[in-house]
Design a protein around this nucleic acid. Structure first.
Lengths: 185, 185
DNA sequence: TCGCTATTTGAATAGACACTCTAATTTGAA
DNA sequence: TTCAAATTAGAGTGTCTATTCAAATAGCGA
């Protein structure tokens, strides 16, 4: 293959960037830090990426894909599946989860393209939960479903947030118990 | 008074810093931006503060106070009061809320002093909710109270997070409905 | 082996940043 | 009014940042 070395370096950069992001946060994600950890020089970095932002964007895209697997199955999944998918994501890739939350909050980069992307994804996720809950609970009217799905997504994000602050937090347990919550009469 | 002018400038700096924080986020909070908006030069800034971090710390301390008013009343307040205090904070100072969440997540500054402070505050807040809920619900055993107060605080943070992402979100409504939630039988 | 291209290097650039310092100015107390 | 202290201005420092580029090197296909 003609450009095998380049692809390998590309992978090294992405994985090193994820590590740096997890250890030092979005602020600590400098080109120098990425290159040092990947064992390359800045020149190689810019041979493979046009900008640092492109790297961050790639990582966020990966996080989005991990949070919402099988987007094609929209229209057939149940709330339980969506919750389990989120649990799997947060537990298997906690640093990616942290990055997602961080960027969502801090607004990302200069031109806001990351924020745009995350907001769009956020809206799609809301819709997907709404559809699934509607299917699971035909006894509720639309506004009740809307309200509950919003509350559910928000609480899930809150639990993820809490888990980042306090790793002893039983994220999976709390997330699953959410499914059984009912408004008191 | 001998140093009235200095105190006035100090106030100008703090309020301008809060505005900048609201408009440009933690990344956009530069000494230059603060001074430009306050109509002063960097020299005056450093006459009144030792570092930029000191300003950020002051603002975060203010946020913490706003989230948890009357810390002396710990031991007498009810869950409803705590929730209402949080609603008031998030609705009246949304950008301060955002800063609080951002710093909690991203780790804040160089030496992590802000993060330490926020983590400590976070733990105190958990304890306060725990105490209040125990008082409000003597019918529940301790582990159930622990679990519920954790879930409540996490969900509140999640709702605040959600509100930052989507300003149309009915934060207050959802937060109040949390109080009425019960695990299904 | 040769040649071409992909890749890497290492130095250089330009801008932003927090922060410092000295000299000028303002201000309040006497 | 006088004067010393408080305050401010404004230029300057050094460090860090992302990014560029010409030149050196490496490695694949023929």
């Amino acid at each position: 293959m003609r450009n095998r070395a380049g692809l390998e370096t590309r992978d090294k950069i992405l994985s090193s960037a994820k590590t740096v992001l997890a250890e030092r946060g979005l602020d600590g994600l400098t080109v120098k830090a990425i290159c040092d950890r990947a064992g390359i020089r800045a020149g190689s970095f810019y041979n493979l990426f046009d900008s640092k932002e492109q790297v961050t964007l790639t990582i966020v895209r990966e996080a989005i894909t991990a949070i919402d697997p099988d987007p094609d199955r929209t229209g057939t999944d149940h709330v339980r599946d969506l919750v389990e998918a989120y649990i799997t994501f947060v537990e298997s890739q906690p640093e990616l989860a942290k990055v997602y939350l961080t960027i969502a909050l801090s607004g990302g980069l200069t031109d806001g393209s990351l924020t745009q992307r995350i907001l769009r994804h956020h809206q799609e996720r809301l819709d997907r939960f709404f559809d699934a809950l509607r299917r699971d609970r035909p006894d509720l009217d639309e506004s009740a479903v809307r309200e509950r799905s919003e509350a559910l997504v928000a609480a899930l994000n809150g639990y993820a947030f809490h888990e980042v602050l306090d790793p002893k937090f039983d994220f999976a347990g709390h997330a699953r118990r959410l499914l059984a919550m009912e408004p008191a009469p």
